[in-house]
Write a protein that binds this DNA or RNA. Structure first.
Lengths: 217, 217
DNA sequence: GAGATTCTCCACCGATTGCGGGAGAAGAAC
DNA sequence: GTTCTTCTCCCGCAATCGGTGGAGAATCTC
């Protein structure tokens, strides 16, 4: 039997969800909460398998409550499924960063919602399709491969790129020389060439370039 | 009517998918391809709404084919739904970075697959639950908020943090002074203090710190 | 073999930088 | 009122740094 905690500040929504859940043989609603503080307390009391969490609530909101719940080692077995009327990037990403296992809109069909509860209880994750789209878009834009390396990087020789990496670690010329087992003069030459090619005045600007081009992380 | 292109190197899989799709009133299979090159050619010929794409194929694989298709402005209306037997991070993330709108496993139920095709055709995204979990985990670990700022950042005064940001832009002391409308001597003092507090020897090391602490991007 | 590229090293010079130390003014905290 | 913090500014010194020019050796290309 999968136990569910319902968190929503609207009585009607809670009643509807409870009715839906209790009508299923394998699901049971073990509690309700109307705000974030209640939610955390109820979660500690009941240790539900799944917590249906609304976002917009007075006082401690759903995202903060989710953070507190997922941060609590005692509640590691409780999964949070965020359920909201509004689909905003901030909500979607905030919920996932807060540790939510799922994100659905309230206009989801009852069948979908029940399926989501079961999936989340099994440890899987599930997002509304539009939320998935947002997440994917964000993921792609965050991906390092999207950040194509500056074309100027190709003008550097192999050795110069190597030196650039070391500069980006904060090493001075002497340390670079040690690492590469060359004379300090050589290290300086490479650094100088890299600066000319990349239009940098400083080694500091080299570091900036290295990070922004994705050479360093 | 939603048009579908099936790409898979196994005849049996293509036959099964075609039968499934053509049995639906609102879906029709307009073509098949057995490898990546065929897939791109067939897509250009038929402009399908949705392309079911296998990953593992000889020659040009599904991910590369997906990249070529999504990179083609002529094929902007075609959505790619990746369908594979193996769920590997590399496949999931690679598919999304390549521009896929969906990622499903071949053990998905026919009903789910059909639903996914319709959702993708509508411009939504859909992932297998386990793929969603991987994506969410990756997303959270990539998120800047996870990368908590170094505690040493708090030891800096407001002004010093400000100066640090400018150093991280590659500015020298004089330029920093101009920006903040103070004398170069003041800028140098702030930079020096920041270096002492952060244990940096160079302004280059300051830049490294700024990027790694998330102060700069 | 000639030419191009790359990696290696050196010398010199001026400029910026980092370091130490000092100091005044304004505001907050006690 | 005193103390603390922060922001502001200055001087001098040694070190590193960046710029310029030159040069030998190895490798690869044509």
């Amino acid at each position: 039997m999968t136990t569910v905690l319902i968190v929503d500040d609207q009585d009607l929504v809670r009643i509807g969800l409870r009715t839906l859940i209790d009508s299923e043989d394998d699901l049971t609603c073990v509690g309700e909460a109307a705000d974030g503080l209640d939610a955390v307390a109820a979660a500690r009391r009941h240790h539900p398998d799944v917590i249906l969490m609304d976002v917009r609530m007075s006082g401690v909101d759903g995202l903060e409550a989710t953070r507190r719940i997922t941060a609590d080692p005692q509640l590691a077995t409780s999964k949070v499924l965020v359920l909201t009327t509004f689909e905003i990037d901030e909500y979607v990403f905030g919920a996932l960063r807060a540790g939510a296992s799922g994100f659905l809109l309230k206009d989801t069909s009852p069948a979908e919602l029940l399926r989501a509860i079961r999936l989340v209880a099994e440890g899987e994750a599930l997002l509304a399709p539009s939320a998935t789209r947002r997440l994917v878009r964000e993921f792609v834009s965050m991906s390092p491969r999207t950040r194509q390396p500056h074309p100027q990087l190709d003008t550097l020789t192999e050795r110069e790129r190597e030196v650039l990496c070391l500069v980006a670690e904060g090493l001075n010329n002497e340390e670079i020389a040690e690492r590469l087992v060359v004379s300090p003069a050589t290290a300086r030459t490479h650094v100088s060439r890299a600066m000319v090619k990349l239009g940098a005045r400083d080694r500091a600007q080299l570091v900036v370039f290295a990070y922004q081009s994705g050479l360093a992380d």
